[in-house]
Amino acid sequence: MNKLYLGAIVVTVLMLIATYVSFDFKHGSSDIVNQIAILGAVVLVIATIFVVVKYVRQMQTDTVTGELMDENWDGVGEYDNPVPTGWAIVFALTMIWGMWYYLVGYPVNAYSQIGEYNEDAKVLNDKFEAEYKHIVGDKLVEMGESVYLSNCAACHGLNADGIDGQAADLNVRIEKSVVKDAIENGSNNHLLGMEMPMPDRNGLFNMNTGALITDAEIDAVSAFVANGMSGAGADVFAGTCAACHGEDGKGMESVSPNIATYDSALVVNVIVEGKKGAIGTMPKMEVLNKKQKEAVAAYVQSLSN
């Protein structure tokens, strides 16, 4: 054994000891990343020493073999050695891989930002479905509140009071001015997906009197509806509005919306269709998914009930 090998062994051992000393086994040994790092350090030490020894040996002992090629550049020549087998195999594999990448790999498996988004969205949508698809009751209201706060509160306010008339006050079903406006001007907000508009005051007859609804009657019935379907004006409601909105004001499917209380179908329809009425314009909220719309409906119902 010559000095080179001896020196190599000494340096290896010293560096391994240094690695051992510098590693905090008490805290670090259970961590997989630390374990891989320490393993890497050991491999690095051994490999480095091995390679250094190999080439130093080669410099010490190698002799000139083979034939020089004909050409030389300013006296610097090149051996006419055959291509090393390993190198040739890797070169051939690289060419095959190049073909694959050019014809199949890149066209078919190319990275796409949108592709990643679609995968990501699918995972999250599935997770949402799995976790929230069947929630009901308080959980649904809870979700509705959080959706409300991030999407609706900007106009309807944190307390759902409509911020001084900027949007509908969701703590009550309907305000008197809104009822009045609908009666006087008619209304069609596609609230239940229907095309038939509610007529304006020139199309609203009071069955009790057999004549068009009067200002006093509009006032009375508006107060009655805004008051939660109670108080004076019940007779006007029965004579004029009940034909479409039902005697209890709860609306009829595909005919009229519920004006006594909020119901899920109504709120969901307002979210889907938007609304333009006495208070102003509400945009469609297209970013919400089906369950979130139901949740907002549940939350809105919970406010006034």
């Binding site: 911020i163 900027q166 102003g280 509400m282 945009p283 297209e286 970013v287």
Partner: peptide
């Protein structure tokens, strides 16, 4: 433009804190 309205912008530009505490 999809989720805010003319009136909202009007109030908001005047006093953002009134709408968004």
């Amino acid at each position: 433009g999809n989720y805010r309205t003319t009136e909202w912008h009007e109030n908001h530009m005047m006093d953002p804190e009134a709408l968004v505490p």
